[in-house]
């Protein structure tokens, strides 16, 4: 039985932890877990993700993230990530920029238990100069040919949002794997938020549909709208109005006001404040809203 309240899962994140976040850009970001971290005083976090948006941006805004391994942090068509940008420009967040591929390779190194992995590409990129602690050029031991290499970073904690989970931590999500499988297989401890908890029989009936096996998972919480204002594919769309409000407030110095308006004491507060009368409009449909 791995089911716990969300607050208990977030309490297991310690100061200085490396936290890898599942999802990609505006989709399946573990926002409820991120909000729960923001409600706590945990600090000095290093975040990791291939391509993230509000999850990374919010923890940069609160000052809790002090370093980020990333290929991209931004809101796609909605714009740049304002708090990430502000903190990096002020040298308050250590930007460990790589590419989506090198971050994936960092996680693959952790998943495979090796200290580094060779990776193709990067020729001519200045990223090799500025991210030398994590990216380098080297030669292969057998043929001496040039290759880039990525240093393994093993996340202390991996966080994944899912459509369904059971009490044993088995996980299934609608849509394709975005980054979740890598995150769950690379991290020392894995925490899951799920839109709903279902019976284990649901997983036993179709094991091929299980995206993350429960034995890899350390704790699971049922959190409806746990990805809001990002999407949880198959359940609800991303909330463009809310995201724009967040971006506008963050850009105009009102990030703290955004937090006081929405964060509350827990996710029940958040849902009441952020989703009042809006849930139907966000419901997933085949057509893009």
């Amino acid at each position: 039985m791995k089911r716990r309240p969300l607050a208990d899962l977030a309490a297991a994140v310690d100061d200085g932890d490396v936290v890898a976040l599942g999802g990609k850009t505006l989709h399946r970001a573990p926002m409820a877990f991120v909000r729960e971290l923001a409600r706590r005083d945990v600090s000095d976090l290093t975040l990791m993700g291939l391509a993230n948006s509000m999850d990374v941006d919010l923890l940069c805004g609160t000052g809790q993230a002090t370093a980020v391994h990333y290929g991209y942090v931004g809101f796609e068509a909605l714009g740049l990530a304002p708090n990430f940008r502000r903190r990096v420009e002020a040298d308050e967040v250590d930007a460990r920029e790589g590419t989506c591929y090198t971050v994936a390779t960092m996680l693959r190194g952790a998943k495979q238990g090796v200290p580094f992995l060779p990776v193709a590409g990067l020729e001519g990129s200045d990223l090799l100069d500025v991210s030398g602690e994590w990216l380098t050029e080297t030669t292969g031991p057998f043929t001496g040919e040039r290759t880039a290499a990525v240093r393994t970073v093993t996340p202390d904690v991996g966080v994944v949002h899912a459509t369904e989970a059971d009490e044993e931590g088995n996980v299934r999500y609608d849509g394709a794997d975005l980054t979740e499988s890598l995150v769950a297989k690379a991290a020392d401890r894995v925490f899951v938020t799920a839109e709903r908890i279902v019976d284990t029989e649901t997983f036993a009936a179709d094991p091929a549909a299980t995206d993350v096996p429960g034995f890899l998972v350390d704790g699971v919480a049922e959190v409806p709208y746990g990805a809001h204002p990002c999407s949880s594919p198959g359940t609800y769309d991303y909330d463009a109005d809310h995201l724009r409000e967040y971006l506008n407030r963050s850009k105009s110095g009102a990030f703290e006001a955004y937090l006081s308006a929405y964060l509350g004491d827990g996710e029940a507060d958040y849902r009441e404040r952020a989703l009042d009368g809006r849930a139907d409009a966000l419901a997933w449909t085949p057509e893009v809203a």
Binding site: A51, Y72, R85
Partner: peptide
Amino acid sequence: NGTVVGSWDDPKVKFGGGGGSGSLLPL
């Protein structure tokens, strides 16, 4: 350039990063 206007050490504008392109453009 999807990284920075100005210099890396003293950025005028920090962009979001180039996604996969740094790896993939040569490939």
